[in-house]
Design a protein around this nucleic acid. Sequence first.
DNA 1: CCGTATGATTATAA
DNA 2: TTATAATCATACGG
Length: 354
Amino acid sequence: ATITNNSSFKKKHALNCHRMKPALFSVLCEIKEKTVLGIHGIQEEGPSNAQLMRLDNMLLAEGVSRPERRGRGGSAAAANTATPGGCPNDNSLEHSDYRAKLSQIRQIYHSELEKYEQACREFTTHVTNLLQEQSRMRPVSPKEIERMVGVIHGKFNAIQMQLKQSTCEAVMTLRSRFLDARRKRRNFSKQATEVLNEYFYSHLSNPYPSEEAKEELARKGGITVSQVSNWFGNKRIRYKKNMGKFQEEATIYTTKMAVDTTKVGGLRSQASCPSTPSSGEGQAVRPAVTQEGPTVPPLAPGSSPCFSVHLSSWPSDPQSLSLQAKSGWQGAAPPASTASPAGDPGSVHSDASN
DNA sequence: CCGTATGATTATAA
DNA sequence: TTATAATCATACGG
């Protein structure tokens, strides 16, 4: 390659004008092409492409990259990726703030992206011009220019990927900050807690509502099935953990249930009754309540036919109620009798959640 | 403010 | 997949 430009300018000019020049030039180009191809044949770009696609999809799903201009070729043709997380959460009350912030992120993202693309274009044209200029002096084939352009695009794509990554990060942060339901917790309505507690205490021996039952409860309480599941999960564990705290509540709802059933027609619909309250159970829960009795006058220990506090361990089986006493969780911590003096004072206000 | 209540999420196991 | 247990982050009442 150095042969052509070692001489003086005059010789160069003479060479350029030589009639064999084009042929020689093309031969040189060919040789160079082979050499270059041999040195670094294929660009890598394997995993980075996959990651870029992941980021792209995420930004698309998050609504950052709007469904419009997909300027460059090459990239995959925007698969569906209909966001499954786009549940009908459009309560649109808190979302306005979230939307605003998201739009801000989107704006920055697009302006940056545009900046990068413009810089990429400028640089590309600059380099192209330069190479074309030099192609008069030394063998520069169109293919080489093309490859150079490809390299440049690769570099800028890497930068763009960084941008996309940071944008993704920002979106995730924003999302966790605004959409995390824990930060927008509202207590359930009285109706909802009512319904849930009724079911819980009337099925205390097996408080695992079926899917249909969950749907029913969700419908009655005006909440979602997931919320019903959450509620029962929390309720079970917390009830088990500290039964003494829930005694009041239990009596309230069991009596309420009893009243309801009598009102309906006095049938033994409750599943909780069957347990033979022969020996041990009553002592566990009752005493404390009777102590504190004044708070709930209407309940007389004998009046409610079914006091549904069975001490069977739920996970096993509702039917086997005979051996509850030795059950781990209950046997270990008899809540009522001993715990009541110390633990009770703290527990208050069974309702009035809202 | 502080402590408790509470809905939701996370980690883990069966 | 669902249940438990722990934990988070807020709501609520004093």
